[in-house]
Design a binder for these strands. Structure first.
Lengths: 335, 335
DNA sequence: TTGTAAGCGTTATCAA
DNA sequence: TTGATAACGCTTACAA
């Protein structure tokens, strides 16, 4: 029922091959012919059939975004950056989450990727996640965001530096008993988390400060988790005077825990986070801000580049700078 | 290069037609035959070619989600609900935003939908948005979320009731000078916004309270907008003692404005929002919570139903209940 | 520069 | 229950 390339060809008095070439902007088409075909196509309101085009060409014109979460700030912000670029390139964006809104696991993404996309963008899966390996094993052009993997292009921030910056900021303020809120209990599989911890350690050691294992807690990168983690730190015999939370959301939770204990962030205990979350300004949280939407844009652009020219050399990892944003949640230490 | 249905057919000693039927679970296939085919397909690691299947069947197996924003809480939360259902149904989810992360407009979605999806889910566009009309004019099965349109199925909350509930709560606390922070300056095109305003009016009138037009301000549904709106209200000769903000994010901004003026939410001026935003608990904001992810799930399920059986009667609008969550930002009026 | 025609890998109709 | 086969609508050598 809908108009096909054949209708356009007949109406324009040319072959379907010429229509195909003309409409796709391929070379070796007479300018006049192309113009005429374009006009006819417009008049007929012709829309190419993606399925037919895909079947014939072998290209799907779509890119999948594989992400553990959709509704969390970091992930939705990355996603918006990716979408923006893909839309500009006329690529379809297939969204695939690896867990339900409640955080439960479900069907692995790799099988659902086969034969349906030209490339994949993976957001912040754990390098040890078997789902990541399965996706990489597909052999599709891939861009990683927020994680790195040998031989796979990625867009990241320098997490060691981020952790170092946050910690050094607290040290500069005169704090010595510095706690840290990580995501997972010991030995996290996440590169970002590990690296931030390395930065924390480096800053502490450089300042000659002791790292008290009792002042480490974890909060699953969530607000309630951060709250619990901070509560745990507060019940120590000797609580920290400052805390480095590895994400803003955990920092929010930590600030909430402080308030429950009638403590004021900044005045009683300093808190610094990582992210530059929308809400950090509102909550007056000092944070190491990362250009999250840019990570998405850059990864998407890199992937498009590879799809257009598979041989083009592209950097394995694009590392974006972070920025310390000092606010009221961190204050000089006063005994 | 990849295994095709032909390979499977030969290996199983049947025709491609039988393979097609067997693998899709169609009736009229011998149980033993089906089993054998399935086994062969598994062994060969056969994956159907979506493009070929789509071309031949006319079904794309994908659904587009059209949304004005991706990175905002309401939208990403709705999206996660939708994704969850579509993934369970084995449908591809095509994500399309109508504006850039910076909020700028770009290519209209309707043309990019043609011939590539079986159905569309539209999130909270303005009923007057020409893009909405263009999408509806496509004639595709459609589900709306957060807006209604004559003859088109939708999932919404009762926004009149939400506005009424929020306002009545303030009235019950003894407030009489009640301000309101809307999204757009006068005559908003958004159903939700208009309806919430109607609820506000109804509650005020019912209580015999005067609606002071000077106590209405707007904040574009953003945090900074809410902050400005509240600031504007504070500079009135006679500021309100309580404010109904039509979204939690605007309420957050309003609370921030209060703090800038050394006022305490709840104690000095009461604030109630609408949404049940992740952060509302943290910020101790009283709010009329809506089941956002459920809206997404329900709209997706309704659409799937229609795709499976185009004749199935389905309700034009599913209206989900809201819930007043009272927190510290609203307190009894004290002169 | 343009046309011919052989795929691309399924689905679906009609027979058997 | 199964098989043959004609679509589906495009792309792309290859020829002209």
């Amino acid at each position: 029922m809908p108009i096909t390339i054949k209708d356009v060809a007949e109406a324009a008095g040319v072959s379907t091959a010429t229509v195909s070439r003309a409409l796709r902007g391929l070379p070796n088409v007479d300018a006049g012919t192309r113009e005429r075909i374009q006009k006819v196509a417009d008049e007929l309101d012709y829309v190419i059939s993606p399925s037919a085009s895909r079947l014939a060409s072998g290209r799907t014109g779509s890119i999948a975004v594989v992400t553990p979460y959709i509704a969390r700030w970091y992930f939705s912000t990355v996603l918006s950056g990716v979408e923006s670029v893909l839309q500009g390139a006329g690529m379809d964006l297939l969204l695939m989450s690896t867990s339900t809104p409640e955080g439960h696991h479900r069907l692995p993404p790799a099988p659902r990727l086969r034969r349906r996309v030209d490339g994949v963008i993976v957001i912040a899966l754990s390098p040890e996640d078997p789902q990541l390996r399965d996706v990489l094993d597909l052999g599709l052009p891939t861009s990683l965001i927020g994680l790195t993997h040998e031989g796979v292009p990625s867009a990241t921030i320098n997490d060691v530096e981020a952790g170092q910056t946050a910690t050094q900021h607290l040290i500069n303020l005169g704090h010595e008993r510095i706690g840290v809120i990580t995501g997972a209990p010991v030995g996290s599989p996440f590169t970002a988390e590990n690296d931030r911890h390395k930065g924390f350690q480096a800053a502490m050691e450089h300042a000659g400060l002791e790292i008290d294992p009792m002042l480490e807690s974890y909060g699953y990168f969530t607000i309630p988790g951060g709250e619990q983690a901070m509560t745990a730190l507060l019940t120590q015999r000797k609580p920290p005077t400052a805390v480095f939370a590895m994400s803003d959301e955990m920092a929010f939770g930590a600030m909430r825990a402080l308030r429950s204990h009638h403590l004021v962030p900044g005045r009683d205990i300093s808190i610094v986070g990582v992210d530059g979350h929308d809400m950090s300004e509102l909550l007056d949280l000092t944070t190491v801000a990362q250009p999250v939407a840019d990570l998405g844009r850059i990864a998407a652009e890199a992937l498009l580049l590879e799809l257009r020219d598979p041989n083009a050399a592209r950097p394995e990892d694009v590392n974006l700078p972070t920025r310390l944003v000092v606010r009221g949640s961190t204050k000089p230490f006063s005994a």
